[in-house]
Amino acid sequence: MFPQTLQTRIKHSIKAQLKIEHLITLLTVSAVFITWYIVTDLKIFSDVIIPSPWKVYKTFIDIIAEGYKGSALSRHLLDSLERLLTAFGLVCITAVPIGLLSGYSSKVRAVFEPLVEFYRPLPPLAYYTMLVIWMGIGNSSKIMLLYLAGFAPVYLACISGVMKIKQDYIYGAYTLGANKYQIFFYVVFPSCLPDIFTGLRTALGFSYTTLVAAEMVAAETGIGWMVLDASKFLLSDVIFVGILIMGVTGIILDALLKFIENRLVPWKGKG
């Protein structure tokens, strides 16, 4: 009976802690909005610098009803998500296997690591012009820019995951008769899943922050383009709407990744 009672107490303790964390989050968000309202209500700054919450809300409703520059808000959002998720999908199917192989084989790492380490510190705008020259002004260059922004974090996370695997696991698999391919798929890959998801979440954030730069050139739709276009005319309310949409969308996408991670890696943090 004692172990069951202890387990019940631990569950109640975890639930109570989660409630406290959710309350703190709610209070933090509320404090930000209250401060925003007070600052704008006292007119400490001009509306051009910081628009009021009511003005941003009204602009949001207007954009939903009438769109922005001839395109509906849903079109702007979906076009941005198409570019982002296409690039992210390419990252998943290329950076993960290449990163795992690089961690598993020093020869593969010797091929890819210098290339990744060369372009990784470069600002996206430094090579975006070249991508436009090579791939045109359409979505291809934009997707490639987002892809390059997301590739490096996943690649490095996969290598780090492989390096952290205990050699005893690998030696044990060899002892049981496993070959290199079986070790890779049944030992290396599962062991690296926590690091892979960490890299994927980081890559998604990097790609999203690069989205504005990707939509700077020859774009007519997109949330990033909407923010940039509004900045030319000092439409701070539209800028705030775009930023809030990007922030909320980013939180939702990250939450989806965390949900998938919890399903595929239930043992994370329990070792």
Rank of each mutant, 00 (worst) to 15 (best):
Q7D: 15
T8L: 13
I10P: 07
H12V: 09
Q17L: 12
Q17H: 13
I20E: 14
L23M: 13
I24W: 14
V32R: 05
W36Y: 00
S46H: 13
V48R: 14
I49G: 06
S52V: 01
P53S: 01
R75H: 14
D79F: 09
S80M: 03
V91Q: 06
A95T: 00
I98K: 05
I98L: 14
L101H: 00
S105Y: 15
V111S: 11
P114D: 06
V116E: 08
R120Q: 10
L122P: 04
Y128C: 03
Y128R: 07
T129L: 15
T129G: 15
I133W: 10
M135K: 10
G136F: 03
I137F: 14
G138T: 02
K142P: 00
K142M: 03
L145P: 02
Y147H: 00
L148G: 00
Y155A: 01
C158A: 15
S160N: 15
V162R: 07
V162M: 05
I165V: 13
K166V: 07
Q167A: 13
Y171A: 10
G172N: 14
Y174S: 10
T175Q: 13
L176E: 09
A178R: 12
I183P: 09
Y186T: 11
F189K: 09
P190F: 01
S191T: 08
L193Y: 08
F197E: 04
A203E: 05
L204A: 05
S207I: 01
S207A: 15
E215C: 04
W225Y: 15
V227D: 01
L228Q: 14
V238R: 03
I239V: 11
L244Q: 09
G247I: 04
V248D: 00
T249G: 02
I252L: 10
K258N: 12
V265C: 09
